[in-house]
Design a protein around this nucleic acid. Structure first.
Lengths: 334, 334
DNA sequence: ATGAAAGCGCTAACAT
DNA sequence: ATGTTAGCGCTTTCAT
């Protein structure tokens, strides 16, 4: 491995000067500079960023912790982080927790010991355990919070309220009176919040005497399908179903189709997330949009600022959701 | 930051001994060992992996270069790599090239300078440029080769032949005589190979006088849709369309549906990749499977072996594809 | 059974 | 305008 000494010898300067030439950190005579640069070229010098990191305490590396890259939710978020990271010469350690606290802890430990300059945590398990480990490690952190607003840490969180309200309003304007909600897994904080927001939105209209019910799903397709099977047993079907995420909604649509029930003519369906799939299924799914790319990008922006300036006041942003009307909703069936 | 010296002082040994306790690299009296360990606990010691890496030349970090994480092809592959990596205490630098050679080069440069222990390249642009940079950097590399077998580097490559042959055979058995192929972007090596394999498969049956044609798409949905629009202008439609990837096939199905043409009754459609989507669309897509998780896993296995043993003979594996019949294919229309 | 000291490649305060 | 030198935190050879 060629290093400063090699360059220094070849260009007859000290290694200090080599350093200063490389980092442009003090004046060096043009001709000396040229000698050094020529030597670097000749030796095909590649800086050792580990050594640099050790000396400076900055690695230009960040960690990105997510639950599961196969969840169609994440790729765009990752993209948002990545683009901005690369633009600013950062590399990303990608860590999948696989929804496993142990694995998450292990990853975060490694990140800290590898001296990342910062960490973005988007895992739904942004748990007190993980947090504990992190907070006292003094590494800059940004958390993407699927839940309620966090205490002291930079965070960006998602507000489903607006979108959910729009969704209900949309249905009401189409004269729906009986609206069901298929939720995510009961244990998931995210899922609970979505339920709450649904109920809140519904109750805004309670002068209309809306009828509603919450059925548990699992945030996957089969959950939506099963939920519909359950619903089908009732004597009178709802005229609309809102689902806790798009996969669920797509499963629900499938269930309805299999039962010979038409979407949206007989039953309207609304999803949440606006994953790419929603535009592909038929009918195209009306859904509540969540700007995943922007979430990632904003998280990275926060992190960059935090890295530059350790004692900035807490940064926080609430990303609103909004309804995207497509083909899976229409007038309520009489 | 607490370091060996702090521990050494507190436990009244030399920092050498601390190192040996931590790495279990030579005998230390049980009682001394205990003192050291207690001190570590007390100080909540976290090793600095940069320093370790600098001293040992091993970072327990690898780079994974892909084209675009939003391409539904990649997440599973990444998962395959990640799981095995974490199991072996490696972290992953994820690099998106965004199909951009410049960005790819930049990333790879950074990986090398950050002293990764190895690199997996799955970018379709596994180009001579990138390769040049890499080969003489002596970093262990595994390339996932969408193309023809590579020369000297460990690689795993995908053989579409079998799957493509099965696909054509399947169609032939359903009495299709006019089969079109919607390809990927012309410039892409991968895409070319898929075309070749298609033609090769078709020509195996040329005693039957099959009619065929290749239409250029772009490996995205709209490409499939546009290709179908083009096809619709012909006087006599093909009875079957094979697509270079699943997104294209799904776009094609959409195009057909919009034109009032039924899949599979009027036209059969076959995709390639077997992404999750194929089971969600309706009709479910018949497709050629490519085991992406396994690709990732195998690549990581190769890399681990290569890291352990620099001068292993070249490792290589060819992953076969196979046809998965679902709902989008049926008897040819008379 | 343990320590001293040099070295990994780079930075930066202090000289000159 | 450039050099000397002491680190950064860890490993490892050579002593004892």
């Amino acid at each position: 491995m060629v290093n400063y000494n090699d360059i220094a010898k070849l260009s007859k300067v000290s290694s200090t000067t080599v350093s200063h030439v490389i980092n442009e950190t003090r004046f060096v005579l043009p001709e000396t500079k040229k000698r050094v640069k020529d030597a670097m070229k000749k030796l095909n010098y590649q800086p050792n960023l580990l050594a640099r990191g050790l000396a400076t305490g900055k690695t230009h590396t960040i960690g990105l912790v997510i639950s599961d890259i196969r969840n169609p939710f994440y790729p765009e978020l990752v993209q948002g982080v990545e683009e901005l990271a690369v633009k600013n010469d950062y590399n990303i350690f990608l860590c999948n927790t696989d929804y496993d606290i142990e694995k998450g802890l292990k990853s975060i430990g490694a990140l800290i010991r590898k001296k990342v300059d910062g960490i973005i945590i988007t895992s739904s398990q942004a748990d007190s355990l993980l947090m504990g480990e992190l907070v006292n490690s003094k590494v800059p952190i940004v958390i993407v919070n699927w839940g309620r607003r966090n205490v002291k840490i930079d965070n960006i969180c998602v507000d489903y309220k607006v979108g959910m309200k729009e969704a209900v309003k949309h249905l009401v304007s189409l004269e729906h009176k009986k609206i069901y909600f298929v939720s995510g897994p009961g244990a998931l904080k995210t899922a609970k919040i979505r339920i709450d927001n649904f109920i809140e939105a519904i109750e805004k209209f309670n002068r209309l005497g809306l009828e509603y019910k919450v059925i548990e799903g699992n945030h996957k397709m089969d959950g939506g399908l099963k939920a519909v099977r359950k619903i089908l047993k009732e004597k009178e079907l709802p005229t609309a179903i809102i689902c806790s995420n798009d996969l669920t909604a797509i499963g629900a649509m499938k269930g309805l189709r299999l039962a010979g029930i038409k979407v949206p003519e007989d039953v309207s369906v609304i999803g949440l997330d606006n994953i790419a799939l929603t535009k592909i299924v038929s009918p195209m799914l009306t859904t509540i949009e969540l700007e995943r790319y922007k979430i990632g990008k904003t998280a990275m922006e926060f992190l960059l600022k935090r890295i530059k300036e350790k004692d900035l006041p807490r940064q926080t942003e609430i990303l609103k959701t909004k309804l995207i009307v497509r083909e899976s909703t229409s007038e309520a069936k009489k």
